[in-house]
């Protein structure tokens, strides 16, 4: 892996980390969900500075060049992040539905209390 390419990738990673940081600062992103991205950036930068760490890793996986190992690991980490995000999205979608349903039922109850009636089948 050439120094030139490594420098470009390190700069790109730092820019990405900076974009995330700014968004966290402005409360557009929650730190909780951003931590895994920062973890990925740190690992990427370490690999790019010391590529020999992953030479052995690539050898085991049958990958010839360090660059491909970096891409492969990057893909794996993105997969994990996407999975966690999908889990969080699904969970939140269920929670939003539950909350909305509670609001719907409470709103009717409040309306009935205001009108001085509460109807059931009894």
């Amino acid at each position: 892996m050439t120094v030139h390419l490594r420098m470009i990738l390190i700069i790109l990673t730092i820019i990405a980390a900076w974009i995330f940081s700014v968004n966290v600062k402005h409360k557009k992103l929650e730190l909780k969900y951003t931590l895994m991205w920062f973890g990925e950036f740190v690992i990427l930068v370490i690999v790019l500075i010391f590529p020999e760490i992953f030479q052995y890793c690539g050898y085991i996986l049958g990958i010839r060049t360090v660059m491909n190992t970096v891409y492969f690991l990057g893909f794996l980490m993105l997969f994990v992040i996407a999975f966690i995000a999908t889990v969080a999205l699904s969970r939140n979608s269920v929670r939003v539905k539950l909350l909305a349903q509670k609001v719907t039922l409470l709103e009717k109850e409040i309306r009935e209390v205001k009108q001085g009636k509460s109807k059931g089948c009894e």
Partner: peptide, 18 residues
Amino acid sequence: IEYLNNPINLGIGGTIQT
């Protein structure tokens, strides 16, 4: 009319479940 009013669109499933 007796009604319930969803604060957001919940789709047919969420609505029937309510």
